[in-house]
Amino acid sequence: MKIAVTRLAGKEGRDVARCAAFGHACYSIHPLRSEIREDVVAAFADATDRGEFDCIFFTSALPAKILAPRLEKTPRIIAIGPETARELTQCSIACETLPGFYSRDFVPYLGEWIKGKKIGLPRADVPNAPLIDAIAKAGGIPREFRCYRLVPTNESLDLHPAEAVLFTSAMSYTSAVWTPRPDLLVMAIGEITADAMRCGGTFPTIVGDGSLEGTLTALNEYCGRTRIIR
């Protein structure tokens, strides 16, 4: 099956190889683009080198890619998933990887250790009040640095060659300019994205676990049941 995957331009990573491993082809579509805030990136790197954080939580691969080459001294590092961890380890930064794929898994993962700890959060300029509140409620001290903006491209997505479309975030769906088709299989990478899609009147047939691999596994299970795999 040929899958259109929403990604930031230039941030497709290993999508083609990962889809091929599950028997599918893919290409990227771009409802959003990133604008790096260099002053915030520099401020975060300086604060890290001064030892101002007890832990850094990378909630996506992009801030890891931006910051990893700039960090000389690092505290405890947590990555939200294997692709984020990959960006860090490529720059010889040791990290732990959350067992789940959602930022809500961060505080339970740290447990009692988080009390009194200063947590660095290099993120997109998108609110995540549940994460900030959870850290504070657990006794941690969140320090958020919004290192980049996500800007809608306002371009109509090219879905003509696609048999399926995968929305990889809630914002990629809400920012998308696209035309649904009866024969187009619609997928959400996880429940948060799926909830945003349902609120917008789109009901995904496939909902993953928050990861590309989990979504492809769910797709193959669906294809096996319906015998439509191509």
Results as ranks from 00 to 15, higher is better:
residue 12 E to L: 13
residue 20 A to P: 00
residue 140 G to H: 07
residue 215 T to R: 03
residue 55 C to L: 15
residue 61 A to E: 11
residue 60 S to L: 09
residue 135 I to T: 03
residue 45 A to T: 03
residue 151 V to P: 00
residue 156 S to I: 05
residue 183 D to Y: 00
residue 107 V to M: 11
residue 204 P to C: 08
residue 95 C to R: 05
residue 182 P to D: 14
residue 223 C to P: 00
residue 77 I to A: 04
residue 194 A to P: 03
residue 192 I to Q: 05
residue 160 H to Y: 04
residue 221 E to W: 01
residue 30 H to T: 06
residue 164 A to Y: 01
residue 189 I to H: 02
residue 226 T to L: 02
residue 108 P to R: 07
residue 208 G to D: 09
residue 34 S to A: 15
residue 203 F to V: 14
residue 57 F to M: 11
residue 134 A to C: 09
residue 100 G to C: 11
residue 23 G to S: 10
residue 39 D to Y: 02
residue 196 A to W: 04
residue 148 Y to A: 05
residue 176 A to F: 07
residue 144 E to F: 00
residue 156 S to M: 13
residue 53 F to T: 06
residue 120 G to A: 09
residue 35 E to P: 00
residue 73 K to T: 14
residue 163 E to H: 13
residue 8 L to Q: 03
residue 161 P to W: 04
residue 143 R to N: 06
residue 84 T to C: 07
residue 188 A to S: 14
residue 117 K to S: 05
residue 165 V to E: 06
residue 149 R to V: 01
residue 107 V to C: 09
residue 14 R to D: 14
residue 46 D to K: 13
residue 122 P to I: 04
residue 158 D to A: 14
residue 9 A to D: 08
residue 29 I to G: 00
residue 42 A to S: 14
residue 93 I to S: 05
residue 111 G to Y: 14
residue 195 D to W: 00
residue 13 G to L: 14
residue 149 R to D: 14
residue 92 S to E: 12
residue 102 Y to V: 15
residue 102 Y to P: 00
residue 20 A to F: 01
residue 225 R to D: 03
residue 109 Y to W: 13
residue 4 A to W: 04
residue 164 A to M: 10
residue 115 K to V: 15
residue 105 D to P: 07
residue 144 E to N: 09
residue 114 I to C: 08
residue 201 G to W: 09
residue 177 V to M: 12
residue 115 K to M: 08
residue 69 P to A: 08
residue 220 N to R: 12
residue 81 G to H: 08
residue 173 Y to N: 02
residue 108 P to N: 12
residue 87 E to K: 11
residue 194 A to I: 02
residue 96 E to Y: 10
residue 227 R to T: 06
residue 20 A to L: 10
residue 40 V to Q: 10
residue 181 R to S: 10
residue 215 T to Y: 02
residue 98 L to N: 08
residue 227 R to E: 09
residue 71 L to T: 03
residue 4 A to D: 01
residue 114 I to M: 08
residue 209 D to A: 08
